[in-house]
Design a protein around this nucleic acid. Structure first.
Lengths: 123, 123
DNA sequence: CGTTGACCTGGAGTGCACTCCAGGTGCGAT
DNA sequence: ATCGCACCTGGAGTGCACTCCAGGTCAACG
């Protein structure tokens, strides 16, 4: 048996990553995604790495990292292993912001629950 | 001694709520804030209630509630006590979304920390 | 009396992150 | 053969939440 590397159609990537096709194209256009491979007809065929990278993007996006910073992270990643310390730094800083976000949310949530209790008490 | 009700200048409200003056005017314009009182010269003088309400707005906004929904909450609040059950419902639903947000963030954070660990392991 | 500074208005502009569209290609099923 | 469908492109449009601007008022300070 002869195997090629496994590839994903746009529809499959949409399914797996939760990004829309337009968003995927947009990410490629701005360079957040490296130029995606194509089949003979010029249609995109995403590699395993593409999908893995999109998972990282999904995570960073969902934690509020702006596209400009993800772009910087993408560039560091492409630049080679010597940028690993920079990548760690970037992720650590982001991690701290995420922690702050969580704490803020927990605090605000307390306020909301309080407000609900107050409303319930006056019913 | 003769006391008026205590009022706040725009600058004081900016200081206390963290909203910019433009944002405050914007909120009043779209009706998120009821028309704010004015002094003889037509300048805004915010009441204690205005400031309290802005605290609530701050909380809802920081937890990701869209303006359209805060507007709905504002309208319910103005409509009188009979809307309290609706307000509770709205806040409960929001509270659930906030909880989901927190859980999501905690999960994503784990992924980020993992990625950092991986990078550190290859150094 | 002049200047500074906080404030006013209506309306235009901004930044972000998509999202949609028109018009076109190529492939597999009927 | 032709239909439907997934996909392609470049570029325009959208929605949200502000943010900025020009031109003006008013009170106080030196």
């Amino acid at each position: 048996m002869l195997w090629g590397v496994s590839v994903y159609t746009p529809a499959e990537v949409v399914e797996e990553t939760g990004f829309t096709l337009d968003t995927l194209r947009y990410y490629e256009k701005i360079g957040l995604l490296e130029p995606v491979g194509r089949n003979a007809a010029g249609q995109r065929r995403f590699s395993e790495e593409d999908v893995g990278w999109l998972g990282t993007i999904r995570c960073l996006r969902d934690t509020g990292m702006p596209i400009a910073e993800m772009l910087r992270f993408a560039e560091l990643t492409r630049a080679g292993d010597h940028t690993i310390p920079d990548r760690i730094k970037l992720l650590e800083e982001h991690d701290h912001r995420v922690e702050a976000q969580i704490e803020n949310l927990v605090e605000r949530k307390r306020y909301i629950r309080n407000k609900i209790s107050y409303y319930q008490s006056v019913l």
